[in-house]
Amino acid sequence: MPEPERAAVRLEDVSPAGTADEQLIRSLFDEHAGSLYGYVLRLTGDPGKAEDVVQETLLRAWKHPDVLADRPIRAWLFTVARNLVVDHHRARKSRPQETTDEALAVLPAEDELERAVESWGVADAIAALRPEHRAVLLETYYRGRSVKETAEVLGIPPGTVKSRTYYALRALKLALEERGLAP
């Protein structure tokens, strides 16, 4: 049996601020880590480096919640991540012995940032759909399958594929509107 009194002390040791911090981190991560990671991975082509950049970007957002209060967080995060990638790239260039194996896949241009924020917002909106909605969109649109083929792959009637596709698109439209990305 653990000593109950000590256990109680340990619980108090986790301050309210601490749990709030963790909640903030979790929500930042849940909402943004996936799209940030995808974006950075495309810039660097290096999964490990992309993880580091995502971590640093989210850590900065967590440390400076005041920065995020009066601006679109997504654009801020992408800007920070992009700057980190560029800084890292420059640091590498200044050390020639390290540039041989890992070059930056794509050096991001300033004006591409806004477009990237939008595109990843779309990916985000699709990823946030209910799984059955996402599945029919993936099959019909991204894999180019017909209703009949999709019905076979997913093991549901063709009529269900049609109705799900319709509701998936309506849900997607809403999700995009919520993100300010209405078509």
Partner: peptide
């Protein structure tokens, strides 16, 4: 037009963020 701007891979990445990063952040 919006669907065409992302790939299936993009969607998968968004749907499965690198959880190791979350652990490190915490």
């Amino acid at each position: 037009a919006l669907l065409s701007r992302v790939s299936e891979e993009d969607i998968e990445q968004v749907a499965s963020p690198p959880t190791a990063v979350l652990d490190r952040l915490i």
